[in-house]
Design a protein around this nucleic acid. Structure first.
Lengths: 235, 235
DNA sequence: CCCCTTGTTTGCGTTTTCGCAAAGTGCAGG
DNA sequence: CCTGCACTTTGCGAAAACGCAAACAAGGGG
């Protein structure tokens, strides 16, 4: 895939939190070194265990980042949304990618050579702070999920996961908020640490209560308040 | 508690990974702004929800960082070991501390005003990279725990947690490797997302198998290989 | 030195969730 | 239009872990 395949829309990038308060000149210099790349649905940006040769920014589309455990079980680490930085293994002092990034829909990413990372960070203090906040938020999310996994039963965890997806990747439709990329019950199970079967049972039950509408690789939140009550039954 | 209470041993700090490759002058300048503080056993460095006024480095001792969920359950986020940076809420773009840091044993911390964070990061690119790696490793650890929580049954999770503690905070003794600070079954339960009762049962069972030796707020790993076999039953 | 608080052990019934199995069903490609 | 794969649903028995309850230490404070 060649750089020419896609043009980088700098104006689109300028407004990302990651580049906030960066000097236009520095940003332009940075973008000049970037390589855009189109990834077909189901295609890989990088694979778990591969040498981390580049870090990326998702411009358009949606990625699922998964890890496979030594004993063969799969876990979904996170969903990458447009504007997110990902694959920054260097920042974790790792030589390889800890997970696999797969395009849930046709996506456009821009990549930089991983060797640039340190220099980029050293020469762009403002970017360094922003990148740190990005990683910090990632850490915060991980802690949130850990807290949920530690203290909440499966139903609440799944409700939280679905609500988060709707918020981050929802598209308003007549019936409600539709998750804007193909997602399977298996995916949701891998996000919440449960099984395909349990997720299916829950969604069926919710559907009969009019909270959601399901379908093959589809999910629409019909009654977000109702779901939120399941997720957080205080009141 | 006054700064005079404790003297900062700069030579001790110089070798920390966090300050690696930093210019001595910059390090000296940094340490000049630091406030050392002694924390008694059971004392708090900061409390969940409080305004994040400072970030810290643990020089000596051991801290437990916990969070309380809205419905009152407690989770142990992590154990802070000497040399660890903690309480860097600013890096997460948070105005408050997400957890409570309590001294498991008498500890010595040094703190910097949180307002210094951005300047420190901007003016010390080398430190910025190191700090990012620190946060990155924290993220890695969180993902490891998430993976464990998602895919492993309780016994394996507890075994992993105990082995990690022994590695990070173990002191060699005649009987084996002793966890070097007071730790309760409840603590271990909060680290692994289970209950006090289940942990107690497991440790009892392991003790009868000669893998560990327990006691009130005490834990000694007698047979690390045996425990590792429980943690990772491949082979 | 004793008492009381805090932590630990253990039994038992109950609940949640899993795991297996088998039967539907939507959709893409031929 | 047909066919097959991938995804989904659902039932049922089994297992893991929880939650309650109650008894039992250990060690610090009076």
């Amino acid at each position: 895939m060649k750089a020419q395949d896609v043009a980088i829309d700098v104006s689109q990038v300028r407004n990302l939190p990651l580049f906030r308060q960066m000097e236009p000149a520095a940003l332009a210099r940075l973008m000049a070194r970037a390589t855009p790349r189109r990834v077909a649905q189901g295609g890989l940006v990088f694979e778990q265990g591969a040498e981390a040769v580049a870090f990326y920014l998702l411009l358009h589309g949606r990625l699922k980042v998964t890890q496979v455990t030594p004993d063969g079980q799969q876990v979904m680490v996170r969903v990458v949304h447009p504007g997110d930085l990902f694959g920054f293994a260097r920042a974790l002092a790792r030589p390889d990618y800890p997970g696999t990034a797969r395009a849930a829909v046709e996506s456009i990413v821009v990549g930089w050579p991983m060797a640039d990372w340190d220099a980029v960070v050293e020469n762009n203090p403002r970017l360094a702070i922003n990148a740190m906040q990005t990683i910090g938020q990632r850490l915060d999310e991980a802690h949130t999920r850990l807290r949920e996994m530690s203290t909440q039963e499966v139903e609440r965890r799944v409700a939280h996961a679905v609500l988060r997806l709707a918020e981050k990747a929802g598209r308003i439709e007549a019936a409600g908020t539709r998750i804007d990329f193909p997602i399977t019950r298996q995916d949701i199970a891998e996000m919440t640490g449960t099984t395909l079967h349990t997720v299916s049972r829950l969604l069926s039950s919710w559907e009969s209560q009019g909270l959601v509408e399901g379908g093959r690789q589809k999910l629409t939140v019909v009654d977000a308040e109702g779901l939120a009550r399941i997720a957080d039954p205080e009141d």
